[in-house]
Amino acid sequence: MAVEEKYLDKLAGPVAEAGKCLLFLFRMLLGIRFSGSQILTVLQQTYLIGARSLVIIMICGFFVGMVLSLQAINALEQFGASDQVSLLVGKSLFRELGPVLTALLFAGRAGTSVTAEIGLMKATNQIEAMELMAIDPIQRIALPRFVAGVISVPLLTAMFNALAILGSVVFSIGVMDLDAGIFWSKLQTGVYFGKDFVGGLWKSVVFGGTISLVAVYFGYSARPTGAGVGTATTNTVVLSSVLVLIFDFIMTSFLT
């Protein structure tokens, strides 16, 4: 095993790394058991990485909604079409900004902490202790965090979007005195459930999986030292952010 790793590292590093990451994903997915304790740990992790990201997601969502409306109204006013603001805000939120911004925030807030946590577990021999207890650490440590990420990101995206629309309501209706009826009816006729809403949801599921896989994998393969964990944490943010934007483009070109 050690010998193989050494050669893999030498051979085309990134490709091999991606392959290892994929194998890691398969090993994780093979560990799904739907047992009581596994569901409990998934719930626990959903709380730790999902629920704790909630506040930052909601605050950001609210202000993104406000600023989007401000910009949209400024631009649309020139054509006398400022009552289209909710359509513009809604579409761009559901299709792009909601999934992408939530994913980036999630990578920074939860991805890093997952990497650091697993890296530290490795540094303090916890992973090894598990192996010696005949507990598969991938199944026990990595899998629940991965699944929790896949569940959390779409839910967080929904809350981001909800708060953003609320922010838009506050600004457009509350501040700019646009008509509430027009606001809602524009959303309800112009934003499509299938294409915009479900499409965006799919995106966020993929983003959640990507970030969680990167975070878990980097934590798991971190060098078990302080510096190693630090590097791994940085790499998690960088790589998962880049991947999110790449996948966003790919998915957008397929979805539309």
């Binding site: 303090t124 010696l132 207890m133």
Partner: peptide
């Protein structure tokens, strides 16, 4: 087999290695 066999082992590692979570 190995997984079953490992139940026969008790392990105490450096620093205790308690699961911090």
């Amino acid at each position: 087999e190995l997984k079953r066999f490992r139940r026969n082992f008790g392990v105490l590692l450096q620093d205790g290695a308690l699961f911090t979570d």
